Amino acid sequence: MSIECTVIKEIDYYTESIELLFRIVNKNSYQNLKIDLLKRTDEEKHAKICYQLDKLFFIQEDIEKHTDMNNPDIKFYFTKFISDNICIAKILYQCMRHSIFSGSRKDIKSYIEQSFDSIKNNNTLELSFDDIDLKTSVYENGQRVSFTDRIGSLECEPAQKWQLLELIEHSGRHLDILYEILDQTVAALKKHEETLVELKEAATEYWVEYFEQHNFHKLMNSFYNISEDSYPSKPTFIRTQIMCCNRVIFYGNDENMGDYHILDVGILFDCNYQVTKRQLTNQELSNGLKLLSDPSKFEILRFIRNKKAYGQEIAAELKLTTATISHHMNTLMKMGLINIEKSDNRVYYQLNKEAVNYLLEVTKNKLLEE
């Protein structure tokens, strides 16, 4: 079955501003990113990388001049939090990344507050962090845990737990402060609108043309090594990201994600991006090792190391819920550690031994041979 794909053409200036301020505050220069990528990519891609990142670096320098780096609110909302890719502002705005919802400022604020109310009041939802998000998944074995205990069990420093409690309890007040900061950045960013539109349109046109000739299953096979026609056939929205130019993030294959998928694609990427073949950064390497160290994910991978198995079968064997299996598989898929294929109307999972071997080989080289 073909998946309906819609490429979003509009620029989301608030999301782009959050990413840009995050990079400025944490000194993640596009110039340094360019140097790194030129070392790790084929020469044929260098011209495109230099052209795009030089433009982003110019914008970054200009916005930094108009940003009060001594403002404690800017430091609070945009300094790295938990991982190298998360900050308080991203957590506060994260439900918008998982959604195609749009509306007035008032509607968006209400939508975000409702999202945090759900996190606070639904005591069946386990909280955890991955590389980019505060995640929610249904507790294994039907557990119910209080909000404070769920925050308390997170793997982070006590001070960070208090910050999360404060953030979720008073999300409306924090949104008001965040929007005051973002409004100034959006105004400054729109002075570079011609450049941003050029970069956005080039990426958008590429994906529009791609989906005129290929389906989403083919792209998922290229990105995540999923056999074609094995992925849930939900409408999918492709969002090209300008400031977050060097990441591909897929929101899907999760029962909590609703009736559609979202794929965020940085403007540096095309359909030839592959999780298991490209060079892993130190952060990506660390993320992969974290997945292997998680007891449930480790047992899942052991169970499917020499055979294919479908979700209910894995859930019964490991005494987990199918929702939990779906959540784990989504995370493992993004790292390319599993293969997915469809047979007899069931979706089967199997360990991607090549990807695991590559992850461990890179780990060995980084630690012992470089």
Score class of each variant (00 low, 15 high):
136 T>K: 13
286 S>L: 11
10 E>M: 13
276 T>N: 10
14 Y>H: 12
39 K>M: 02
318 L>M: 01
260 Y>T: 06
138 V>H: 09
24 I>S: 05
256 N>Q: 14
359 L>Y: 04
25 V>Y: 03
121 N>W: 15
297 K>W: 00
206 Y>R: 02
158 P>Y: 11
115 S>T: 10
39 K>P: 00
99 S>V: 12
191 K>A: 10
291 L>I: 11
228 E>A: 00
357 N>S: 11
26 N>I: 07
344 D>H: 09
326 S>T: 12
4 E>D: 12
12 D>R: 04
29 S>C: 08
279 Q>N: 08
309 A>H: 00
224 Y>G: 01
352 N>G: 09
68 D>T: 10
210 Y>M: 04
246 N>K: 01
366 K>D: 02
165 L>A: 03
59 I>K: 07
128 S>C: 09
357 N>T: 13
83 S>A: 07
243 M>T: 07
130 D>F: 03
174 H>E: 08
215 N>G: 10
328 H>V: 00
128 S>E: 07
361 E>G: 07
304 I>R: 05
8 I>F: 04
59 I>T: 08
149 D>S: 07
256 N>Y: 14
85 N>C: 06
20 L>H: 06
48 K>C: 04
253 N>P: 04
329 M>V: 10
108 I>V: 13
288 G>L: 06
63 I>T: 08
40 R>N: 13
349 Y>A: 12
326 S>K: 13
105 R>V: 13
268 L>H: 04
159 A>C: 04
6 T>D: 03
178 L>D: 13
26 N>D: 03
360 L>D: 00
239 R>V: 07
348 Y>P: 09
278 R>D: 15
111 Y>F: 15
91 I>V: 13
56 L>W: 03
49 I>R: 00
201 E>R: 05
181 I>Q: 08
226 I>T: 12
166 E>D: 15
299 E>L: 01
263 L>E: 04
265 V>A: 00
134 L>P: 01
230 S>P: 15
363 T>A: 10
5 C>R: 03
175 L>A: 11
223 F>P: 02
335 M>H: 10
275 V>G: 01
257 M>P: 01
291 L>G: 00
275 V>I: 15
156 C>H: 08
40 R>F: 10
125 L>E: 05
282 N>P: 00
189 L>Q: 02
307 K>R: 14
264 D>R: 14
133 D>S: 12
